[in-house]
């Protein structure tokens, strides 16, 4: 379909950079992996050699026990098989990077996952001009317009005020979303302790070690039930309807996710208080980013790729869907 960047091959299990003999976010173990960020569907264990930002390496170290990789700070570059490679912030989670590759006069950017709005726990997205822009499309449908984060945080705080005889249990993914919810609460001036499910503790502590201020965070495990009345508690989504939550005082079930925009999605998860907060670009951000970057061709890795490719065609821009497999739809 395209003659551009013949040196890059999209495969179902990753993007292969031929001259460098390296893969971007491969879903199976390879000898050379360029990893955009620490989410499990992008960063898998078992690669022989990994290039990633220092933060991503630390996250992978926490998850897979190995961090023998080459640390590539934002803006730094290196060369592999004649391909000039550099990492630039993507604004998705702490350490998330877009990978810029330059070869034979062509510039290709692979975004991994990204968002455009501010996040107190990670560096903002950087617009990098390029010929081929390889983007995600997790929320690539025009129904997805994430509302102002501050308003969603206000919804959470109002629910807390209105339920002093209960507690607010917020489901949030362990890497990124949980820390962002805490960070946004702090930004809104909320200083009370925030309680954590055990599965979130290590990652939050790692964020703190890496210089992200999360304020007073405490484990649920060491806390008396009564002490959590009227408090905010964070847990991974899988724990929301689990036995674990019975130790909490009559929780109001909340969930922080971009999917909460769709009512029936929230109902499927038995969510009472949907908080529309996403670490992915919404429809307007995706389309604005393509306009900003203005590539000669856009490749779409995963998500609602048909819709984004169609939008590009409507706007006289060249685009194709890569049909990657194994990307989790729910990791937001």
């Amino acid at each position: 379909m395209t003659n551009a960047a013949h040196w890059i091959e999209p495969h179902p299990h990753g993007i292969y950079i031929k001259p460098a003999d390296a893969w971007i976010d491969p879903s199976r173990a390879v000898s050379r992996a360029l990893v955009t960020h620490g989410h499990a569907d992008h960063a898998r264990g078992g690669h022989e050699k990994v290039w990633a930002t220092p933060e991503t390496l630390a996250i992978m170290g926490l998850r897979y026990g190995t961090n023998s990789g080459c640390a590539v700070p934002y803006g730094d570059g290196f060369e592999l098989g004649g391909v000039k490679i550099s990492y630039h912030s993507a604004g998705h989670v702490l350490g998330s990077a877009q990978i810029l590759m330059e070869y034979q006069g062509e510039r290709v950017v692979a975004t991994g996952d990204y968002k455009r709005r501010t996040d107190p726990t990670c560096a903002p997205f950087e617009v990098i001009s390029c010929d081929i822009f390889i983007t995600e499309a997790t929320f690539g449908l025009p129904v997805f317009k994430h509302p102002d984060t501050a308003d969603e945080i206000q919804k959470l705080l109002s629910a807390k005020e209105a339920n002093s005889d209960r507690c607010i249990l917020v489901g949030a993914y362990a890497l990124g979303k949980a820390q962002r919810v805490i960070g946004e609460l702090r930004k809104a001036g909320y200083d009370d302790p925030i309680f954590l499910h055990g599965a979130l503790e290590k990652m939050c502590h790692l964020y703190q070690e890496l210089g992200v201020d999360l304020g007073d965070i405490r484990p649920v495990m060491d806390t008396e039930k009564e002490a959590m009345l009227g408090q905010i508690i964070l847990a991974p989504p899988s724990a929301l309807n689990d036995r674990w939550s019975r130790r909490l005082p009559d929780p109001v079930t909340a969930m922080a996710s971009g999917w909460m925009r769709v009512r029936q999605r929230a109902r499927q998860r038995n969510v009472e208080l949907p908080l529309i907060m996403s670490d992915h670009a919404d429809w307007d951000e995706l389309t604005q980013t393509i306009k900003d970057v203005s590539p000669s061709e856009t490749w779409v890795t995963h998500g609602r790729e048909d819709a984004l490719v169609h939008w590009c065609a409507l706007n006289q821009m060249k685009a194709r869907a890569l049909e990657m497999v194994g990307r989790e739809e729910e990791d937001d």
Binding site: L141, V143, R304
Partner: peptide
Amino acid sequence: DETLFKLSRDFVGD
């Protein structure tokens, strides 16, 4: 756009 609407309808289910 019709296609974008249909894809969205299919995803949202309502």
